[in-house]
């Protein structure tokens, strides 16, 4: 009994810990004056929200831009990862482990190691300050995730189903649409979500390649966070987090329908 209470408390603490940093941000977004030692703001105000949602601040446009860049990055990364994941997961060939290390490298090597050289390269190509330049830059850290997820998915994928479908006279496109894709869809979706989130949170690569002209939300948020406007920072942070949460919730809801997490007890 006592153990149950303890573990329930531990779970509650975990839930609080996971939500913790978002709470003061949410409160700050409606605070006007919240100084030590007040536990709650002295005055509530929607001024920060109205500024953040006004066209002057550029937050809404920036939200759309950030979403667009992340979505395009995710689609390209997943499209490139699909054949590569299939090759790495299903086939044995010389150099496979070298390719694996190469795929993993951008996830392990910090963005700064890439950003400095990439800026010089893109400057000469005239790609800095462009949305496509930023998408290309985001591809680097985003690619490993869908590739590794799809490698694992294809390693478990049974190609006999494809063979059977072919024997029954299905054309290659039909095999892909009706057999292969449904089987690897959860992995495809997980990889796409991870690539999306990597691009969605990217700061340094956007700063160095976008050169300030491609103003994604993390850049905007950083400017407010380093200028002491906690209310604006809170409002922009909420605007930044909420769509990503909704997006994740939507996808995970779908995923839990197709591939539920284990729902059994061990004792």
């Amino acid at each position: 009994m006592k153990r149950d209470v303890l573990s329930a408390l531990a779970r509650l603490a975990l839930a609080l810990f996971l939500l913790m940093p978002l709470i003061p941000l949410a409160i700050w977004s409606v605070a006007h004056g919240w100084r030590f030692p007040a536990l709650l703001p002295s005055e509530l105000s929607l001024a920060a929200w109205s500024y953040a949602l006004s066209p002057v601040s550029g937050v809404v446009g920036s939200l759309g831009l950030t979403f667009f860049i992340a979505a395009v990055t995710s689609v390209i990364a997943t499209a490139l990862a699909y054949p590569a994941g299939r090759a790495l997961g299903r086939l044995r060939f010389p150099g496979r482990s070298v390719v694996l290390v190469l795929v993993l490298a951008p996830a392990v090597l910090p963005a700064i190691a890439v950003a400095l050289g990439l800026q010089g390269l893109f400057l000469r190509m005239g790609w800095t300050g462009t949305i496509w330049g930023v998408v290309l830059a985001h591809l680097i850290p985003a690619l490993p995730y869908p590739t590794l997820v799809l490698t694992a998915v294809f390693a478990r994928f049974d190609p006999h189903h494809e063979d059977q479908a072919r024997c029954l006279g299905a054309r290659p496109l039909q095999v892909l649409l009706h057999v292969t894709l449904p089987a690897v869809l959860p992995g495809l979706r997980t990889g796409a979500v991870l690539a999306f989130l990597i691009s969605w949170s990217q700061y340094l690569l956007t700063l160095s390649i976008g050169g300030g002209k491609v103003q994604t939300l993390p850049l905007l948020l950083f400017t407010f966070a380093t200028s002491g406007r906690n209310d604006l920072t809170g409002a922009v942070a909420m605007i930044y987090v909420l769509p990503a949460l909704a997006f994740m919730a939507l996808l995970l809801r779908q995923r839990s329908k197709t591939a539920p997490l284990p729902n059994r007890t061990d004792r």
Binding site: Y51, S227, L232
Partner: peptide
């Protein structure tokens, strides 16, 4: 005109952008 300026003050931003 692409005017690059410190962007941390909502009042200054508003004056310029508006």
């Amino acid at each position: 005109v692409n005017w690059f300026m410190w962007g941390g003050s909502d009042q200054i931003n508003r004056y310029v952008s508006d």
